[in-house]
């Protein structure tokens, strides 16, 4: 099985109602597991689109910046509490989630990442480190339910998930900053 088929298979598995329901039943799993895996499915399926529409990607994403901006906008949109709530309430939004995360975030991420300079990559990671830490702070300290569908405790859990993930990103940036790969490779 090549990665394109694996990505498609994983995508279909994730949208099966019982699987989607189980993952959406826990707030942090909804945001930190289902959504990133949806992005990963797009990442895996990307070579299919890259070969089919090579001229399109070359024309619109030759330096990787438009693609990564689209990725940041889509992922940023899905980090908002309200969008998660709507995905559970309105089937149109749920559908948009299943389309946007793989195809408007996963695919452009893959197409852009290799085209970006090292500074660009670091900028993206810095943006997400800050976003994760801020979101973590927000979800941990918010005294009221930000989502109608999830309890306060789930919100706090998600906050800690954001914070620990943000810390992991910061460690990675530190590793990039302090260790020069050319000294070893």
């Amino acid at each position: 099985m090549n990665q394109k088929t694996f990505g498609l298979g994983l995508f279909i598995f994730l949208i099966i109602p019982p699987v989607a329901n189980l993952m959406e039943s826990v707030m942090i799993i909804h945001m930190h597991m289902q959504m990133p895996i949806l992005v990963i499915t797009g990442f895996l399926m990307a070579p299919f689109f890259q070969s089919k529409f090579s001229r399109f990607f070359e024309k619109w994403n030759h330096n990787g910046i438009p693609g990564i901006l689209l990725f940041i906008i889509i992922v940023g949109y899905w980090m908002l509490p309200r969008t998660m709530d709507e995905a559970l309430e309105l089937w149109m939004v749920e559908l948009f989630k299943f389309i946007s995360l793989p195809f408007l975030a996963g695919v452009p991420l893959r197409d852009s990442w290799k085209k970006l300079e090292q500074a660009g990559k670091n900028t993206v990671i810095i943006i997400f480190s800050i976003a994760f830490i801020v979101m973590g702070w927000l979800y941990i300290n918010a005294t009221m339910q930000l989502c109608n569908n999830y309890l306060l405790i789930e919100q706090i859990t998600l906050g800690w998930g954001f914070l620990t993930m943000g810390i992991a990103f910061v460690i990675f940036l530190g590793y990039r900053f302090f260790f020069n790969p050319s000294a070893y490779e």
Binding site: I29, M33, T157, G161
Partner: peptide
């Protein structure tokens, strides 16, 4: 490894 650990432990530990 850190990310996997963080994801796995955050739910029960926060609770």
């Amino acid at each position: 490894m850190i990310i996997v650990v963080a994801m796995a432990y955050v739910i029960p530990l926060t609770d």
